[in-house]
Each structure stands twice: as C-alpha cells, then as structure tokens.
Amino acid sequence: MDTVRYLDDDGKPLRDIPLSEEELLAGYRALRRARHFDERALVLQRQGRLGVYPPFRGQEAAQVGVALCLEPSRDWLLPSYRETAAAITFGMPLSKLILSWRADPAGWGAPPEVNMVQFYIPIATQVPQAAGVAHALRLQGKDAVAAVFIGDGGTSEGDFHEGLNFASVFDAPLLVVVQNNGWAISVPTQKQMKVQRIALKAQGYGIPGVTVDGNDLVAVWTVARKAAARARAGEGPTLIEALTYRVAPHTSSDDPGRYRTEDEAEAWKKRDPIDRMRGCLLHLGLWDEEKERALSEELEAEFVAAVEEADKASEPRPWEIVEQVYAEMQPDQQAAWNYLHGGEA
C-alpha cells in the first residue's frame, strides 16, 4: 500500500499538482496561521494565560488539508483535543479558541455559522457520533459531509470500530481522519497495534482506506477532497490515515524525555509541513521573503486582536455551573443556582 505524496521532503513537486496557484497560496497561509496560533498559545500557557494546552506542531498539514475541503455552515467537524489547527481553518474564531483553552465557557460554543462540536476529550467516542451526524445530514437531504479526527491510539477503542461500522453500513458521508503521529502520549504506534498501516483497517468495513503523507499539504488536501466528493455522491465514508509526527509534547504538562529520545523528533522536523509547503511555493515562484514578512505581520496582528477580544470576556460566574444542564432549569439546578447566587438554597 503506497503512501500518497505530492511533495518531496524539501517541497519539490514529485508529480503534477492538482491545485490552483490561489489554492496553494491559501493553503500555505492556513498552515502558517495555525502554526502561529500554536506557537503563541504555548507562550500564553507559560504565562499562565491558558490552561493545559495540547500543541499540534508538525501536524498542521494533516488537519488543515482536511478542513480546507469543508464549508463550516454546511459541513460538520468533530475534532479531538489535538485538532486546533483544523478548528482554525474550519472557521472557528481565534478568540473563541483562546477562551476554549482557557477553560472559559465563553469559548465552548461554536458560532451558529460554524458546525464544529467542541473538542472531544474521551478517545474515539466522537466516531459513532460523527457517523450519526453524517447519516442525519444525508437523511435530511443536505449536500453535506462530516469529518471526524482521532489519533493512532484512538483506533484501539471499541468506538472506533463501532463508528466505522455504522458509517459504512449506512453509507454515511463521513471522513474518518486518523492522524498517526507515532505516539499515544508515551505508547508508540508499534505497541498500540500489530497492523502498522491503519488505513488497512478500512478493509474490515468494506470502505476505502488511504495512507497519505500527513506533512504534505498538497497530498492531504487532494486525498480529502476526493473522499469528500465521494461522500457527497452518496458513496459512503473513507478512512484517511495521515502519517505525521507529534514533535511537541502530548500537552503543556507532558515530559516526552521520559519515554523517547529527541532523535526521532529531530528527523521529523526536517520534514516540517510548513517548510515543505514554502519550498513548494518557492519552487513554483509563488513566494518570496517580502510576502513571508507581510504574512507574519498579518498573523501576529490577528492573534493580538484575538487575545484582546478574548480578554474582554468576563470571568465565568459560579452559577453558570448549573446553567445549560437542561433547556429549562429544573428544581434541583434552580436551588443550586440560587445558592451560588448567594441567596437561599
């Protein structure tokens, strides 16, 4: 089984690129936008201005390439906690994402025009839900698809199997994207499963499985676009395995030194998805230092504005704990709400 690639490790095209110049430029911008957020978010976290944060450095292309195929008010995204890059590209406002990783409820609800379910923390539970979302979209006659993300470790969960089986039985318009980043916190993929090609698991469900170079934006975008077109045509789900690497710690609280050497990460850093995409643009004569500088300034201004916006949100109030439990507050929640307001319970 081949791995789909369009760019070599330096970004030089290996074959004809099925994307327009505008798309290539938009794709590079989306990658840089995600990377900028990730880098600045880690700084905020170190300053105590974010909570526990799961960085996605090195996995930008695997997420951005899929999100670029989706339209946020029509399609759906069900991400795990690692997929902030997908969320950014899908259209989640940066200020909301900052609040979300600040554990502020003001960041938890996507705007009405963005069908993104809040990041999933349990592993693979979103897969059967995504199958249900996709099936419901189809039953309602909508020309829409859902995309769900998990990691290599998530494929060990029963819900990965049940979700894929449901999606395939009902021909649900779904993209199941597994970012095989080599690690489930400290457990390497080789210890997670005997099969070393996650895409092969698709055969067990009678659906297509594709392994793609997850650090090659052109490849991910092209594969995801094909899978989305297939889903929209009513032909059912596709399992996409994006080979990538978690060059950063599991979260801001993790110490990878306890379970791996940095050699492997260093090797993967040479295949950085953003450097490769920039290499591609340079090779095609679409990019220069001046454009790079302008983009950096634009992204920093955007991030600063997003932090300012996020900082305007008022601190969560204690009684919000018992709000949004039910559509209408029930007697027990009302009593707690009264107490938390300082009144009589």
Binding site: V127, P128, Q129, A131, V133, H135, L137, A146, E162, G163
Partner: peptide
C-alpha cells in the same frame, strides 16, 4: 442497526445534534 449498543447511542447522539 448493527448489534452494538455504544454505536447505537453514539449514532443517536450525532443524529440528534444534527
């Protein structure tokens, strides 16, 4: 549906959300 209760409930949650 297929014979899988977690699948049924997860699928149902997704359908309700959508």
């Amino acid at each position: 549906t297929p014979l899988a209760e977690s699948g049924i409930v997860g699928f149902a949650i997704g359908m309700a959300m959508a």
